[in-house]
C-alpha cells in the first residue's frame, strides 16, 4: 500500500507516522500542503500536531490549503484517509467527518496512556483488527468530541462510531473518559467507511513503543 503523509505548517507527528507505516511494510512519501494531486496514493494520513498553530480553532486553518481540496477529491474516489489527533480535527473542520472536537472538559492538555475499545463499525480501515481493546497514548487539549443529538443518533444507527475510551477490561464508563467526549467517542468514520479520525496516537504504539498500534495499522499490511 502506498501511503501519503501530509505535512501542514505545524504538523509534528509526520516522522512518527512514517516510521509506523514503514514498520508495517507500507511505502511512504511526505505530501506538502500545497500538493493538488493525490492519485498515486492508496491512503493519506493526516498526522497530529498543531497545524497553523491551532489558531482560531484546532484544525480550522488547514482546511483552506490546496491539499484540503485534493483530499475532498481523494475521498470521492474512495481512497483511505486517516486523521490522527490534529488530523481528526482537520477532517471534522473539512466536514469529511461529522462533529467537532472542543476543549477538554478539564481545560488541560492531557498526555497519557488510554485504552480504547474497537466498536463493530462500517469502517474499512479497522475490519482486520483482531484485538478489541487497544492501549495507546493521547496527547491533546481539544479532543472532546461533540455533535448534536441528530448526528449522534445517525453515527450510532449507521455504525460509524469506531473507537470508544474504556478501561483496561473494556468497560466504557465515565471514569475512562479522559476529555468529556460524548458517549466516550475516541474515533468515528464517514458514511462510506473510508475516512477514519481518532484522537489517540496509534503511531506511538508500534515497535519498541508497544504492539497495539501494530494491531491498529493492520490495514497497511
Amino acid at each position: 500500500m502506498k501511503v501519503g503523509i501530509v505535512r501542514f505548517l505545524g504538523t509534528n507527528c509526520d516522522y512518527d507516522c512514517e516510521f509506523a507505516a514503514n514498520y508495517m511494510g507500507a511505502q511512504t512519501k511526505f505530501v506538502w500542503h500545497e500538493q493538488t494531486n493525490l492519485k498515486e496514493f492508496d491512503c493519506i494520513i493526516l498526522p497530529g500536531g498543531f497545524s497553523y498553530g491551532d489558531y482560531l480553532r484546532a484544525g480550522a486553518l488547514a482546511k483552506f490549503t490546496k491539499l484540503a481540496s485534493a483530499l475532498i477529491e481523494f475521498d470521492k474516489y474512495g481512497g483511505y484517509i486517516l486523521g490522527i489527533c490534529n488530523g481528526f480535527q482537520i477532517l471534522c473542520e473539512l466536514h469529511l467527518l461529522d462533529g467537532a472536537l472542543i476543549t477538554n472538559v478539564n481545560l488541560r492538555f492531557i498526555h497519557k496512556q488510554v485504552h480504547i475499545k474497537l466498536i463493530p463499525s462500517i469502517c474499512k480501515l479497522t475490519q482486520n483488527i483482531e484485538k478489541k481493546i487497544l492501549q495507546m497514548p493521547i496527547a491533546h487539549k481539544e479532543g472532546n468530541f461533540y455533535c448534536d443529538e441528530t448526528t449522534l443518533k445517525k453515527l450510532n444507527d449507521e455504525n460509524r462510531i469506531v473507537f470508544k475510551y474504556c478501561d483496561k477490561d473494556g468497560n466504557v464508563d465515565i471514569g475512562s473518559n479522559p476529555n468529556g467526549s460524548l458517549e466516550n467517542i475516541a474515533g468515528i468514520c464517514n458514511k462510506k467507511g473510508n475516512v477514519l479520525g481518532l484522537m489517540p496516537h496509534p503511531e506511538r504504539a508500534v515497535s519498541f513503543l508497544g504492539q497495539d498500534g501494530e494491531h491498529f495499522f493492520n490495514f497497511l499490511r
Partner: peptide
C-alpha cells in the same frame, strides 16, 4: 460564541 447547549469549559471555569 459557543452555540446554546455546547459545553463551554472555559466559561464554566
Amino acid at each position: 460564541k459557543p452555540k446554546k447547549g455546547v459545553l463551554d469549559p472555559q466559561g464554566n471555569a
